[in-house]
Simulated scan of single mutants.
Amino acid sequence: MSGPVVPQHARELAQAARRVLVLSGAGMSAESGVPTFRDAQTGLWHRYDPAELATPQAWARDPGLVWAWYEWRRSLVAACQPNAGHRALAEWARIAEMSVVTQNVDDLHERAGSAVVVHLHGSLFAHRCDSCGAPVELPVPDQAEISGRLAPPVCVHCTGRIRPGVVWFGEALPAGALDEAMTQIEASDLVMVVGTSGMVHPAAALPGLAVSAGVPVVEINPNPTGLPADVHWPVTAAVGLPALVDQLG
């Protein structure tokens, strides 16, 4: 069976680009089976509103509940594998300078072999102390060991608790993340916008920044988003990206 037809202009832009910036959203990981923010509300968690768990107030009120939910989500993501779209980006990096700015909190870009410049919304796999900010690496939990509550680990540097390394509602983006994303965009020859809805700010403003800077934009998304782009290609990441990269050699 033949693959999708790559739009000619998208192919020409990709072939000419030596520095490529990829802005990825939830659609990038959907074909890996990564549950969305709200899809993680299954089993033990069906009665909880995720928007009420993902806040500094929830952490202060019931850290054991919040920690358990994030450990549950981390275990779900760890069981997923990078899809053909993730792998295609890593392959593309062999012939072009590739940078990734992602809104996703999973680690599938990294596991596929891409160097992620910025996790705009943090990562499920980058923990830190809620007091001193020290980074911490932790093994992935076994789902069977996760119940309604888990006590967060205690920081070895102070008396703080280890918290998820994600951006909660009401929190600012990681220090310098947006500035770094903007710098990378303005230095690129091409911006690929893959699987993002265009509804979450400030990430939704980044394609417009590229257009204003004269950097061409190719959007890969099966659904229209209204984001500014030179080419809108209605295809999924795992289908479109391998087809495009196959034509770059």
Rank of each mutant, 00 (worst) to 15 (best):
residue 170 G to E: 13
residue 148 G to M: 03
residue 94 R to P: 14
residue 92 W to A: 02
residue 145 E to R: 10
residue 141 P to S: 05
residue 139 P to Y: 11
residue 137 E to K: 14
residue 100 V to K: 12
residue 130 D to C: 15
residue 157 H to A: 14
residue 95 I to P: 15
residue 153 P to T: 04
residue 159 T to N: 01
residue 139 P to H: 09
residue 110 E to M: 07
residue 115 A to E: 03
residue 128 R to M: 01
residue 94 R to V: 09
residue 143 Q to M: 04
residue 118 V to H: 00
residue 91 E to R: 11
residue 112 A to S: 02
residue 147 S to G: 00
residue 170 G to Y: 03
residue 112 A to M: 07
residue 178 L to T: 12
residue 91 E to D: 02
residue 101 V to K: 06
residue 106 D to Q: 07
residue 175 A to Q: 14
residue 101 V to D: 09
residue 182 M to Y: 10
residue 115 A to I: 07
residue 123 S to P: 07
residue 174 P to D: 02
residue 92 W to N: 02
residue 156 V to E: 12
residue 145 E to M: 11
residue 110 E to I: 11
residue 97 E to F: 01
residue 183 T to A: 14
residue 185 I to K: 03
residue 149 R to S: 11
residue 102 T to C: 13
residue 104 N to D: 04
residue 139 P to C: 08
residue 95 I to R: 15
residue 106 D to G: 07
residue 138 L to N: 07
residue 171 E to R: 06
residue 119 H to K: 09
residue 129 C to A: 12
residue 136 V to T: 06
residue 105 V to P: 04
residue 184 Q to C: 12
residue 171 E to K: 05
residue 98 M to Y: 05
residue 180 E to C: 04
residue 178 L to R: 00
residue 106 D to Y: 01
residue 110 E to R: 09
residue 121 H to W: 11
residue 155 C to K: 00
residue 159 T to Q: 06
residue 105 V to G: 00
residue 139 P to S: 00
residue 131 S to W: 15
residue 160 G to R: 15
residue 142 D to K: 01
residue 101 V to R: 05
residue 183 T to L: 03
residue 100 V to H: 06
residue 112 A to I: 03
residue 119 H to C: 01
residue 111 R to A: 13
residue 169 F to Q: 03
residue 153 P to M: 05
